[in-house]
C-alpha cells in the first residue's frame, strides 16, 4: 500500500469517526440511528482491514471471510436491536 493511500485511509477513518459521533449526538432516539452507526462502523472496519492490514492484496478467500463475518455481525445486531 502506498503512503498516499494510507494517509487517505487515515483521514477517511478520522472523518467517519467524527461523523458517527455527530449522528449519535444529534439524532439520539431516532429509529434508524443504530443502522447508520453500524454501517459507518462497518466501513471503518473494512478500511482498516483492507488498507492498513493489506487485505486488499490477499486471496479472495480472506476478503470474503472478513466481509461475511462483518455482514453476519452487523445483521444479527440490527435484527436483535
Amino acid at each position: 500500500m502506498t503512503k498516499k493511500n494510507l494517509l487517505s485511509t487515515w483521514i477517511l477513518l478520522i472523518a467517519l469517526t467524527l461523523l458517527v459521533v455527530f449522528f449519535s449526538l444529534f439524532f439520539d432516539g431516532e429509529n434508524y440511528l443504530a443502522t447508520i452507526i453500524l454501517l459507518i462502523s462497518a466501513l471503518k472496519f473494512l478500511a482498516i482491514s483492507f488498507y492498513f492490514m493489506e487485505m486488499k492484496k490477499a486471496h479472495v478467500f480472506w476478503k470474503t471471510t472478513i466481509i461475511v463475518f462483518l455482514l453476519l455481525f452487523i445483521g444479527i445486531v440490527l435484527i436483535i436491536s
Binding site: M1, I14, L25
Partner: peptide, 24 residues
C-alpha cells in the same frame, strides 16, 4: 463518557496508521 471513547478511537486509528507506515 463518549468524548473519552471518541478520543480513544482516534488514538487507536492513528496508532494503526503509524503501524501501517512502519511496515511500509
Amino acid at each position: 463518557n463518549t468524548t473519552y471513547g471518541t478520543i480513544n478511537t482516534l488514538f487507536l486509528i492513528t496508532s494503526g496508521f503509524f503501524m501501517a507506515l512502519s511496515v511500509r
